[in-house]
């Protein structure tokens, strides 16, 4: 009998409190803009903070309040931005999908090793020890600071350098900030021709530390019919607007540092 009483009593209590709370919920209902919830669903949802707000919730609220741009969330991707624009009743801004690229090919064996690093597994720590474990002061150190920061699992470390999967990359920019050497850049996804070296030393010095270093010879510049390449600071730069992705530059590069994805 006791067990029946116990069940009944708790059931009744639960029902009574439930009823009271329902009543209170009606009474104290706060009108929340339902668009906030809708916008939130379109976002990356990783609370990466790349938008500059405290998290996805804060960003969604800011978008609805008109304080943040609809395309402020990089991980939302093109689809997300389009849907957010629909929710907000705006035309979708023309945004090109960006992707993070590692501008270094200094794998183990390609880039010269200054010393064997055996310490705490962090690029920032290694970079501060006698100029880093690789001779090149622009090289990817390859201990995975960027990998730790990537919330989308897009980065793997292979043979001493970082590799980014463009499919998984959402261009949130966390890795760009994490890299002590600034090796990672956000580039348009369509830009499949990339100068994978940032060594601004003279040709001889650059070549001495890495077999794949850009020596700033300018052959790519001469080959390019669209004047999309300039050589500045000792290495080649490609203008993404002018480049037609023909790939002629990559064929003539004597150092193999222009790659076609």
């Amino acid at each position: 009998m006791t067990i029946v009483y116990a069940g009944l009593l708790l059931g009744a209590l639960g029902l009574a409190f439930g009823g009271l709370l329902t009543f209170a919920a009606r009474k104290f209902h706060v009108q929340v803009d339902e668009r906030i919830e809708q916008v939130k669903e379109c976002l990356g949802g990783a609370n990466c903070g790349a938008c500059g707000y405290a998290g996805c919730d804060a960003f969604a609220a800011a978008v609805v309040a008109g304080k943040a741009p609809v395309n402020g969330c990089a991980p939302a991707g093109e689809k997300g931005v389009r849907r957010i624009s629909e929710i907000m009743g705006q035309a979708a801004p023309d945004t090109e999908k960006m992707v993070a690229r590692v501008l270094c090919q200094g794998e183990n064996g390609v880039a010269m090793e200054r010393y064997a690093y055996d310490g705490y597994k962090s690029c920032a720590v290694a970079a501060s020890l006698a100029g880093g474990p690789k001779d090149c002061r622009f090289a990817c150190i390859g201990l995975g600071d960027c990998q730790d920061k990537c919330k989308f699992g897009a980065i793997t470390m292979a043979n001493g350098i970082a590799q980014i999967d463009p499919e998984k990359c959402t261009a949130c920019g966390a890795c760009v900030k994490a890299c002590p050497r600034s090796v990672i850049s956000l580039l348009p996804l369509s830009q499949n021709i990339i100068v994978r070296c940032r060594n601004s030393d003279t040709a001889r010095a650059a070549r001495a530390v890495c077999m794949d270093a850009c020596i700033g010879c300018g052959r790519c510049k001469k080959e390019c019919q669209y004047e999309a390449i300039i050589v500045e600071n000792g290495f080649a730069h490609i203008d993404h607007e002018k480049c037609t992705r023909c790939g002629a530059c990559a064929k003539v590069c004597p150092c193999g540092c222009i790659t076609i994805e």
């Binding site: 006791t2 009593l9 708790l10 409190f17 919920a25 104290f28 209902h29």
Partner: peptide, 26 residues
Amino acid sequence: LKFMNTIAFILVIAALVQFVEMFLKK
């Protein structure tokens, strides 16, 4: 049903806190 006090109290407290939350939100 003295032995049910813990469960009953938890129920009361949970409902109360929910109520306070709604009240403050408003």
